[in-house]
Design a protein around this nucleic acid. Structure first.
Length: 511
RNA sequence: GAUCGCGUAGCUCAGCUGGUAGAGCACCUGACUUUUAAUCAGGCGGUCUUGGGUUCGAAUCCCAACGCGAUCACCA
C-alpha cells in the first residue's frame, strides 16, 4: 500500500508527460523503451580520446574519404539542445561526458525524431564517427541513435545539480548522475581500499572473514545491535569488532591475517560516525605495536598516492602532508603539556578534573579521569594537519594490551590522530590468559550501566589464549575516516554510499 | 538524547514589519543544421512538511510533531 501511495505521488504531470511520450514512440515509431544488449561499447572518456584532428580536418574537404574513428557509446542524457534539423545532446557515463550530434540528414527519420524529443535522464546508445563541431567540441556524429532506457522521473536541475543533502543520501542514484564528483569520491574509495589490500597482500598478510553475527559482542566497548536466529532460537549480536576472532586465528597458527569489513555500533550518528562502518584489522604474530606503527604509516602513505600528491592533501582548512614521517608523542607527555599535571599523580589529576568540572572527580577511578581529561584538553592540542601517533596509553584503559615491562601502568598501545580524528589504534597484544581473564573480570565488575547488560565474558577466547597465542602486534584502522581524509569529505555520509537515514515509512504508516 | 538552524513547483531558489504565491531550469505547443546552462514566442505546474493556535486575514507570528543539517552528548 505504501508502494501505491508512492506511485500516486510520483504520478505528477511531468511523469505523465514522459509516459505519454514513451507510449507515442512505441506506437508511432516502434520504439522499445527498455533497450537490449549492446556489445563493443566504448566508454565516453575513451571515445573522446579517440578524436583524430587530421582525420577530422581531412573529411571536411570535398569528396575526401572519411577516416575518422567510429565508436558505439551509451550514456544518460544530461543536456539536450534541439535546433530544428540538428540536435545536440550530452550524455554521461562513469568515465565522463560526451556530446552526441544528431543531424536529420544522417539518421533514419524515426531515430532522429527520438533524438530531437529526448528527455533529460533518458539513456541512449549512439554509433558514429568521432569528430568535432565548428566550435571545436569533440562529439560523436550519430548515424545510429536508439533509446536504451526511458527515464520516467523528472531529473534534478541540470546546472546546479542535486544539492539537497537528504535527497542526495536517500536517493544516491540521483546524486550520482547529477553530481559526477560523487562517483569520483566512490571511485577513489574503491582505489584506496584496493591499494590497502594490495599493500597487505604484498606483506604476505592473509585476508580472512570472521563472523559478523556473534553470540557475544566483544573486542571493543560499544553498544551492539541485537538480532535473533529463528531455527536455533538464539540471540545474536552484530559484531562491534572482529578482534577476538582474528586473534583465535593466530592461536590456530596463521601468522599474518587481516580483515576489511563492517562493524556495527548502536551509538549516535554524527559527521564522523555511521552505525555501520568499515574497519581494517590486522594481526601479525611475533610483531608488536611498533611493527604495526611502521606498517600503518607506510600503508597510509601508499594509499595517499592513489588520490594525488601525498605531500599536500587538503581536508577542510588543513593541508596534510603524508609524505613526511608522522609525528610521535607519548600520551603522558601530551597529557602533561595540556594539563600541567602528571597523569600518574592521582591527587593532582583529581584536582585538575574538579577544576574542569569533570563528573566524579573525587570518586571515579584515577585512570578513567585521566582518559576524560585527555579527551577534554589534550586531544585537541594535537596539530590537526600533522598525522600524529600518540603512544604509551595507560594500561587501565587498554584491557587487551600488554602492559609495559618497566611500568605496568602504561601499555604498548598507540593511536593515530589526523585532523582531530582517531584513525587507527594498535597494540602489542596481551597474550597472557590469566592477566586477560583478570582484566575482563575487572572490566565487567566496573560496569554498572546498561552497556554491561551486553557484556559477557568470552570464555572460549580465554581458552584460546590458554592454548597459546604467539606474541603479536594488532591494528585497527577506520577505512571510512581514512577515505574522508584522502578525498577531502568532512562528513562520513559522503564516503558511505548509503548512510543510515531515519526511516520515512514509519511516520506515514503509523500515523 | 540536548541546543540552534532549515523545510515554498520535479529540481535550484526568491518571497521585507501578516494582506491570500514568484523566478530560472524541467515539462507541453511552435520556430531554428554547429549548439555549449542554446535562443525566441506562447502555455502548464503549489495541501507553502504535517497538525493545532493567534488574527478580519498566516508561507510569514506562536505551540507541537516529523524530516534534514550543524554543534554537543554517546562512541574505552
Amino acid at each position: 500500500m505504501t508502494e501505491q501511495k508512492v506511485q500516486q505521488q510520483d504520478e505528477s504531470q511531468l511523469v505523465a508527460a514522459r509516459r505519454a511520450k514513451m507510449d507515442r514512440w512505441a506506437e508511432d515509431l516502434g520504439v522499445y523503451p527498455w533497450g537490449h544488449r549492446e556489445d563493443g561499447l566504448t566508454s565516453l572518456a575513451d571515445a573522446k580520446a579517440m578524436f583524430d584532428q587530421a582525420a577530422h580536418d581531412a573529411q571536411r574537404e570535398e569528396g575526401a574519404e572519411d577516416t575518422r574513428p567510429r565508436v558505439k557509446v551509451a550514456g544518460r542524457c544530461i543536456q539536450h539542445r534541439a535546433m530544428g534539423k540538428l540536435t545536440f545532446l550530452v550524455i554521461r557515463d562513469d568515465s565522463g561526458d560526451l556530446q552526441i550530434s544528431c543531424s536529420k540528414a544522417a539518421l533514419p527519420e524515426e531515430q532522429f525524431k527520438v533524438a530531437k524529443k529526448l528527455d533529460y535522464g533518458d539513456i541512449i546508445v549512439a554509433e558514429g564517427a568521432v569528430g568535432a563541431t565548428q566550435k571545436g567540441e569533440i562529439c560523436v556524429w550519430a548515424d545510429r541513435f536508439e533509446l536504451a532506457c526511458k527515464s520516467l522521473v523528472p531529473p534534478p536541475e541540470k546546472f546546479h545539480g542535486l544539492s539537497d543533502t537528504e535527497l542526495r543520501y536517500r536517493q544516491r542514484y540521483m546524486d550520482m548522475y547529477s553530481n559526477p564528483e560523487t562517483i569520483e569520491t566512490f571511485r577513489m574509495r574503491s582505489n584506496i581500499v584496493s591499494s590497502i589490500r594490495a599493500f597487505m597482500d604484498a606483506q604476505q598478510y592473509l585476508e580472512v572473514e570472521t563472523p559478523m553475527m556473534q553470540p557475544l559482542a566483544g573486542g571493543a566497548a560499544a553498544r551492539p545491535f541485537q538480532t535473533h536466529h529463528n531455527a536455533l532460537d538464539m540471540s545474536l549480536f552484530l559484531r562491534i569488532a572482529p578482534e577476538l576472532y582474528l586473534k583465535r586465528l593466530l592461536v590456530g597458527g596463521m601468522r599474518k591475517v587481516y580483515e576489511i569489513n563492517r562493524n556495527f555500533r548502536n551509538e549516535g550518528v554524527s559527521r564522523r560516525h555511521n552505525p555501520e562502518f568499515t574497519m581494517l584489522e590486522a594481526y601479525q604474530a611475533f610483531g608488536d605495536c611498533e611493527t604495526m606503527l611502521t606498517l600503518t604509516e607506510e600503508m597510509i602513505r601508499e594509499s595517499a598516492k592513489v588520490v594525488g600528491d601525498p605531500a599536500a592533501i587538503s581536508f577542510g582548512e588543513h593541508a596534510i602532508d603524508y609524505s613526511k614521517p608522522f609525528e610521535r608523542i607519548s600520551y603522558g607527555v601530551l597529557f602533561e603539556n595540556a594539563t600541567g599535571v602528571s597523569m600518574s599523580d592521582e591527587s593532582a589529576v583529581r584536582a585538575k578534573a574538579a577544576e574542569l568540572h569533570i563528573a566524579g572527580a573525587d570518586k571515579r577511578n584515577h585512570w578513567l579521569l585521566v582518559a576524560d581529561l585527555f579527551e577534554e584538553v589534550a586531544e585537541g592540542s594535537i596539530d590537526p594537519s600533522r598525522p600524529t601517533f600518540v603512544t604509551d596509553f595507560p594500561s587501565a584503559i587498554s584491557p587487551l594490551t600488554r602492559p609495559q615491562k618497566d611500568d605496568a601502568t602504561l601499555s604498548y598501545r598507540w593511536e593515530l590522530f589526523i585532523a582531530d580524528m582517531e584513525i587507527a589504534n594498535a597494540y602489542t597484544e596481551l597474550n597472557d590468559p590469566d592477566l586477560q581473564l583478570q582484566l575482563f573480570t575487572e572490566q565487567l565488575e566496573g560496569e554498572d550501566d546498561e552497556v554491561a547488560a551486553f557484556r559477557t565474558l568470552d570464555e572460549d577466547f580465554i581458552h584460546a589464549l590458554r592454548v597459546g597465542m604467539p606474541p603479536a602486534g594488532g591494528l585497527g584502522l577506520g577505512i571510512d575516516r581514512l577515505v574522508m581524509l584522502l578525498t577531502g569529505n568532512e562528513s562520513i555520509r559522503d564516503v558511505i554510499l548509503f548512510p543510515l537515514m531515519r526511516s520515512q515509512e514509519t511516520q506515514s504508516d503509523d500515523s
